[in-house]
Amino acid sequence: MAAEVAEKSVDSVGGDLAGKYLTFNLGSEEYGVDIMKVREIIGVMEITAVPHTPEYIKGVINLRGRVIPVLDLRLSFGLEPREYDDRTCIIVVEVVSGNGNIMIGMLVDSVSEVLNIEGDNIEPPPDFGTAAETESILGMGKVKEEVKILLDVDRVVGRGVMEHLEQVQ
């Protein structure tokens, strides 16, 4: 089933996904997010912890008068936590949620560059056996010899917040 889906989307995936991506690092892995989703990139600032939230939701920050939640992408992906340093960044993305669009900050190890990835160079996510692991991945972008994991921000971040909301209810 998974293979079938993957096969079917080989052609369509590339074409729709072509465009500019902001790439960043988490450990040794490189990720990319659709540049149109990114609102801004800011350095780490003091985060106010919010109680009764999952561990990966680090809290809230003041983004020019707006209070927005920040989540640690490492923790969200189940990677080892890491001390924040001066390379650590918060990528502020605007995602679609049940109550309209919301802004959320994602903590990443470092931001690298904006890449234009062509449709031919984007492959569907590999099949790791379970659907859950790839559902937030749009595709794999090949740039030179490297592979960037292109994330579906609405899923990654939206899911984080959604899950939390469900937990509360």
């Binding site: 003091e46 106010t48 919010v50 109680p51 009764h52 939230t53 939701i57 809290g59 809230v60 920050i61 003041n62 008068g65 707006r66 209070v67 927005i68 939640p69 949620s97 109550n99 919301i102 802004m103 959320i104 917040v161 939390h164 909301l165 509360v168 209810q169």
Partner: peptide
């Protein structure tokens, strides 16, 4: 009073605000 972005219905927290030093207080 500001809402906490996407976070809502947190036990014991009605919302957030921005304090004098620019940080968020609950």
């Amino acid at each position: 009073i500001k809402n906490l972005g996407g976070l809502s219905d947190i036990d014991g927290v009605a919302g957030g605000t921005i304090l004098g030093d620019g940080r968020v207080g609950l």
